[in-house]
Amino acid sequence: MSEVRLERGGEGVVVLTLDRPEARNALSPGMREELTAHFTALAQDADVRVVVLSGGTKVFAAGADLRTMAEASPSDMMRRGSERFWGSIRNLPQPLIAAVEGWALGGGCELAMHADIIVAGEGARFGQPEIKVGIMPGSGGTQRLVRAVGKFKAMRMLLTGEPVTAAAAEAMGLVSEIVPEGEALGHATELARSIAALPPLAARKIKEVVLAGADQPLDAALLMERQAFQLLFDTADQKEGMAAFLEKRKPDFKGR
């Protein structure tokens, strides 16, 4: 049985929904394999402009499936090659929006942090509780969280294992915006449609430069930005966008 649902919402938007409610969407090996396959395929799909990732209306993802890890050895964990799963998400060129309701814990929080935008319902909770079971985050939790919220907020979450509310997550910079409970997916999908209506090549370049430049010295990152900016002047969408602005009409972006 599939543990991930894919829906094409039209207008270049695809919604991926984690569908393992009986386990609070714990990231089982099967779910990871499905997500890897989906993200790998979507990256190559020219018709896809924005991807939305949801866990449904009750919970985003309550972390890894500990039943598959409790007796594992270091070599067992190494052979699983989980970096392949996370790499498929990290390498998605299209913008990715996470719609978070309920718990986003451990691997679930790390999954949400792979998104470019996080829309959270008011009842959402974010946390890295790995320390409570004798381990630590192993899929970017110590690195992405620090980059998102700074050392001191991140260390409190990591060393106590205690979750934070959606309001606290927004205040520290972990969440893009908060919506009424139960409305995260609808709002994220609406946001995805608005982004999908804009030039997709420009959107991809913005994502690429923001992510690649984050850990570069400022001068190197500015050079990267400048080159990407100049390259977009070779696209049909740039010509269409500026012509439409000057002619006071709605642009028709083709992704070329």
Rank of each mutant, 00 (worst) to 15 (best):
M1I: 11
S2M: 11
L6H: 09
R8K: 08
E11K: 13
G12F: 04
V15E: 12
L16M: 11
L16E: 10
P21F: 03
A23I: 14
N25Y: 08
N25L: 07
A26P: 04
S28T: 14
S28W: 08
L35P: 03
A37Y: 11
L42F: 11
L42P: 07
R49A: 00
V50S: 03
V51N: 01
G56F: 04
K58M: 11
V59Q: 10
V59Y: 03
A64T: 01
D65H: 10
L66R: 06
T68W: 12
M69C: 09
A70L: 14
S73T: 15
D76V: 09
R80L: 15
E83G: 08
R84I: 14
W86A: 06
W86T: 13
L92Y: 05
P95N: 04
P95E: 04
L96A: 11
A99E: 03
W103N: 12
L105Y: 10
L105M: 14
G106E: 07
H114N: 14
A115D: 13
I117M: 12
I118P: 04
A120S: 14
E122Y: 02
G123P: 07
V133D: 07
G134M: 04
P137D: 07
P137L: 06
G141D: 08
T142S: 09
Q143I: 11
V146Q: 10
V146C: 07
K151P: 01
K151C: 05
F152Y: 13
L158K: 03
T160E: 10
T165Y: 04
A168L: 12
A168C: 04
E170M: 03
A171S: 03
G173T: 09
G173V: 11
G173D: 11
G173Q: 01
V175R: 00
V175K: 00
S176C: 05
P180K: 05
A188G: 11
L191C: 04
L191G: 02
S194E: 14
S194F: 06
I195D: 00
P199H: 04
R204Q: 14
I206V: 12
E208D: 07
A212N: 13
G213A: 14
A214D: 08
A214I: 08
P217Q: 03
A220G: 08
R226Y: 10
L231G: 06
E240G: 01
M242R: 15
M242D: 01
E247L: 09
R249K: 15
P251G: 01
